[in-house]
Design a binder for these strands. Sequence first.
DNA 1: CGCGACGTTGATTTGCCTCAACGATTGTGG
DNA 2: CCACAATCGTTGAGGCAAATCAACGTCGCG
Lengths: 193, 193
Amino acid sequence: MAEELILKNIAKYIRLDKSEQDYFLSVVKKRKIKKKQFLSQEGDISKGPVFVTRGILRSYTVDKNGFEHILQFAPSGWWIADMYSMVTQKPGQLSIDAIEDSEVFLLPKPELEKLYITIPSLERFFRILAENSLITYQQRIIGSLSETAKERYNNFCKTYPSLIECLPQKQVASYIGVTPEFLSKMLKNKNIS
Amino acid sequence: MAEELILKNIAKYIRLDKSEQDYFLSVVKKRKIKKKQFLSQEGDISKGPVFVTRGILRSYTVDKNGFEHILQFAPSGWWIADMYSMVTQKPGQLSIDAIEDSEVFLLPKPELEKLYITIPSLERFFRILAENSLITYQQRIIGSLSETAKERYNNFCKTYPSLIECLPQKQVASYIGVTPEFLSKMLKNKNIS
DNA sequence: CGCGACGTTGATTTGCCTCAACGATTGTGG
DNA sequence: CCACAATCGTTGAGGCAAATCAACGTCGCG
């Protein structure tokens, strides 16, 4: 169940007693997002971080030529947000939408601020979350600096085996930083590492 | 003075009373690092995060062809670490060395863990640090996905105006993801945005 | 001085993009 | 339930940004 999923996610790093769990659940808001529906758009101010309990979300930018560039996929069990906008509360450059019909918990930023005070161990939880996230972004930068498109694709498959199966190729191309046409040609020459 | 610099850095986000400040200063270790000297190398296990009080450090990987790819520059007033290795305490893939004669405070990981307990607000400090760092890495990924080398260079100049003046071109090339030769050619055709 | 690191310049190559056309699949409204 | 549009993946021809390789000048420094 959705509530169990998010509590279990938190329990990976910190312990909450029953009353803290109840309080936490009382401030998050359940939201359904249909396929292709936006959670937030470029220029919006982030309402707060979101935890996915069903489906898949993605965050991306659109460049001046109209091409999408995907920053993150968030299948169920993952957090997603426009961090820049969430931290600064200024308009962000990311759009977040659903790739499939999805369900999420929104943790409103004002509630989050209160939680940091009433349940200080949540500060630790989100510190660890940020650190882990940081690590994966660092890996991705290293990849984009030192690997070929082929290698980046193979790494993506290794890192997100479950996503490969349910994502359109186009989205994977956008994530690893090549055109859909080029990815298609790449895959024809069976380049499995 | 070095001690003031690090306390001021912390004071940007949290308040420590005098005894907490003293305790904090008592657990960090001052280190001098000569130009080209390593703070840590690929395969090492991170000793903990480092705060630069003088000079400039850099973290980078070396790819299979022997080329360096710079992940981060850390001038004085900045933190730097191999986050992966620091969090997991497994051998990291980053090397960190000094571009100029430098001075740093090392915050040993075991001490950091204790600090999180004795001074819980440091948990907040490092959460905010990780979040801000996360944001800059996200921006960099978006840049690498959607911008040309020229645009990435111009952004680098805008974002780190003080670094441009003291870094060899080669290092900037390595950071923005082009060869030194290409950056040189780019700059000849006065492509200032 | 002489060596090594750096920046420069040119010739050539290549990984990936652009544009365009086409078939297959999906989904949607009449 | 079918017709049509939309989306997706594929394929090919041609183009460009950036890499590679090689040679050379310059400077700072031991």
